[in-house]
Amino acid sequence: MSSIINNILNILTPILLIATGALITDKAGSLNIALEGLVTISALFSIIGASISHSILIGTIFGIISAMILSYILSTLTSKLKANIFITGLATNLLATGICSIITFSIYGTRGLVTFKNLVQIHKIHLFTIDISLFFLLAILLLLITQVMLNNSALGLRIRACGEDPHALKSYGISRTKIKLISFMLSGFFCGIAGSYLSLNLGSYVPGISAGKGWIGLVVIYLAGSNIKYLIPAALAFAIAEAMSIYFQGITNLPPDIVLAIPSLFTLIVMVIVSIIIHNKNLIKR
């Protein structure tokens, strides 16, 4: 039982971080589909940073910086070139994969798994038989800070206004580009921490380490109705589902490929169910 709970917390931590970051861009009116890429690049850079410095903290900072640089590039190029954010988001995912492969290939001579020995372990608090990592506590803390930021700060007010009507902002003397940039940078910050957690917790970097968590993050926001209060239960639903699929993989003989398909399938089903609920609600409203 405690191993299942540990598994759930382990999966919940990155999803919650990613979703919180993506919620900020969502509130500012953009669908950030570059989350996968941001998580991936941070996963590689944080493990490189940690292996050089033998410090989880410095590794995490490496990861955060790399993801924030990438989201800066994404946001600035998109606004400077007046490009379509979906396409540039896809491009960012490709770019991150490309950069990571090239780096692992150039430095470690492999395009696959990179393992580091003598890595420092992530601190965990033992509560009875459950391990709670500092990253999980950080994720909860940051979620609360984000809530306060969105509801009770000038920046939050501007982000919400930007999400409602970005063009009207100009007449208030507020730069829409700047607000979008800030929201993307914050999103990068959160994805950075999530990426660090993924690779540092695993002790290695594998291509595709984010394993669709960026997309899950988007669906979590959708499921929570863009309401920060429902972010934890929504993220928890995904974490439980994925933990269950790992559990069943252990006790049944399902082929691994099919097991790998379960998170996407589950995300899809949730996405469709939520849209059915929203659709029916709107029908009655009319």
């Binding site: 000038a154 007010l157 501007r158 919400r160 206004a161 409602e164 009507d165 009207a168 007449s171 208030y172 003397g173 507020i174």
Partner: peptide, 21 residues
């Protein structure tokens, strides 16, 4: 402006003070 530049989900005071909070 002819087309109002207001944010429907924000309150009057939030709209009025936006940018000079």
């Amino acid at each position: 402006h002819q087309k109002f530049k207001l944010f429907n989900n924000l309150s009057i005071s939030e709209n009025v003070s936006l940018g000079v909070e």
